[in-house]
Design a protein around this nucleic acid. Structure first.
Lengths: 207, 207
DNA sequence: AATGCAAGTTACTCGCCAGTAGATTTTTGC
DNA sequence: GCAAAAATCTACTGGCGAGTAACTTGCATT
C-alpha cells in the first residue's frame, strides 16, 4: 500500500497518525506519573518531554483528570483481558487461577498496570473515581470467581474466597512499588516465582 | 498527686498537655490524610477540624512535609517494635516469623501504619524521603532476617528470602487500602487469617 | 478563491494553599 | 509588678499549575 511512498497521506494514514500521537502522549504521561507521582507531574512537564506545548495535550486527551483516567483504564482493561483469557484455559480450577495470577502480576509491572496500583482513588475527580472503582470491582469479582471455581472443584484449599483474593491481589500488586523494569529480573520470572510462593505457602510441605 | 485538683498546672502537667495537643494534631492529620489523601488535605482543613488556625499547627509540628514525615515515622516505629518483639519470642523460626507477620498486618490497619503504606515517597521532600526510605529498609531487613533464620532452622520452606519477603509484605500491606476499621472484621482476626493463607498456600495440603 | 477544519502556538487568568509577619493574649518565673 | 516566653490569632504574600482565549499555519474540500 502506498507504493510510491508519497508524502501525501491518505485519510487512513492521517487517522493512524493521530492515534499514534494520542498514545504517545498517554505513554509519556503514564511513565512520568509512575516516576514522579501524579501530583508532582504537571501537564507542562509532560508536554515538555514530548517537545510540545500544554494545549496540545488538551487537544488530544482533555484535562489532567481524563488523562489519568485513561491511563488506569488501559491498565485495568489488560487485567480484564487476562481474566477472560484464563476462563478459556483448559485444566483444573487451580490451573486457571495460577495462569491468571501470573498474568495479573506481569501487568502490574507494566507502565499502565503500575499506574493502576499507584493511583489512589482520591486523585481522581468524583465521576472518574466511580468509573475507576467500577472497573476495579470487575477485576476483583473475576478473581473471586476463579477462586470459587477452584475451591469448588477441590483443586485449591477451601476457605474464605474474599480473603484469599485480597491476599493474592496484595502480594501481586506490590511489585508495582518495588520492581525495577531495568533490573536483572524479568517480570515474567518474578511473576511466576511470586505465584509459586503463594500457591505453596511458606510452611514446608512434606512430599 | 495534685490532690486538690488545683487549676494551676505543674510544669510536669504543662509538658504533658503540650504533648497531648501535639499528638492530637498528628492524629487528626493522619486520619484526614488517610481519608482524603495527602494532597487533597490542606493544613487549613486539618486546623479547621481541630477548631484552631493553621499557624497553630506550625507551632506544634512545623511544615506540612514534617507533619507527614512524623506520621509515617510513628507508623514505622511500630513496625520496628514488632520486629524486635518477635526476636524475643520463644519457638521455631517459623513461629517468630508468623507472630511478627500478624503484628505487621495489624499495624498496617491502624491510622499511622496505613499512612505509611498509602504515602508515596514522591510526596515527601528529598530529605524526608531519604529518612522514610531508610526506615522502610530497616523493616525490610528485619523481615528478611526473620525469614532467613526460619529457613535456616528448617521451619519454613527454602527459597529466595527476598522474594518471599516482598510477597508477604505486599499481601499484608494491602489491607491499608481496603480494610474498613468500622467494618465487622477486627484487624486481629483478619491479620491472623491472612497470615494463615500465606503460611499454608492455596494449594491443598495432604491431610 | 473561499471556507473550514486540524494541529499547533503564545500568553494569559485565576484559584488554591503553603508558608509567614506581626499583633494579641495569657502564663510564668523572678 | 514586670520582662520574657508560650500560645494563639488575623491577614497577608507568593508561586505554582490547571485550564482557556485567541491567534497562526497548513491542508482539504467544494
Amino acid at each position: 500500500m502506498n507504493e510510491l511512498n508519497s508524502p501525501f497521506p491518505t485519510p487512513q494514514q492521517r487517522q493512524e497518525e493521530r492515534e499514534a500521537k494520542r498514545s504517545a502522549v498517554l505513554r509519556t504521561a503514564v511513565q512520568m506519573f509512575n516516576e514522579r507521582g501524579f501530583h508532582q507531574t504537571s501537564l507542562d512537564d509532560v508536554a515538555a518531554r514530548l517537545g510540545v506545548s500544554k494545549p496540545t495535550i488538551y487537544h488530544y486527551l482533555g484535562n489532567k483528570d481524563q488523562v489519568l483516567l485513561e491511563c488506569v483504564t488501559i491498565g485495568l482493561s489488560q487485567l480484564i483481558a487476562a481474566a477472560e483469557a484464563a476462563r478459556g484455559t483448559p485444566g483444573s480450577g487451580a490451573d486457571r487461577l495460577t495462569s491468571f495470577l501470573r498474568r495479573y502480576a506481569e501487568v502490574n509491572m507494566d507502565d499502565f498496570g503500575r499506574c493502576v496500583i499507584r493511583t489512589s482513588e482520591e486523585a481522581l475527580a468524583p465521576d472518574s473515581r466511580q468509573q475507576f472503582r467500577a472497573l476495579k470491582r470487575r477485576i476483583d469479582a473475576a478473581m473471586r470467581t476463579l477462586i470459587e471455581e477452584a475451591m469448588a472443584d477441590g483443586s485449591i484449599a477451601p476457605g474464605d474466597p474474599k480473603l484469599l483474593g485480597f491476599a493474592l491481589a496484595g502480594a501481586l500488586n506490590w511489585p508495582a512499588r518495588w520492581h525495577d523494569p531495568g533490573g536483572p529480573d524479568s517480570a515474567e520470572t518474578l511473576a511466576a516465582s511470586l505465584v509459586d510462593w503463594l500457591a505453596r505457602g511458606f510452611l514446608p510441605r512434606r512430599r
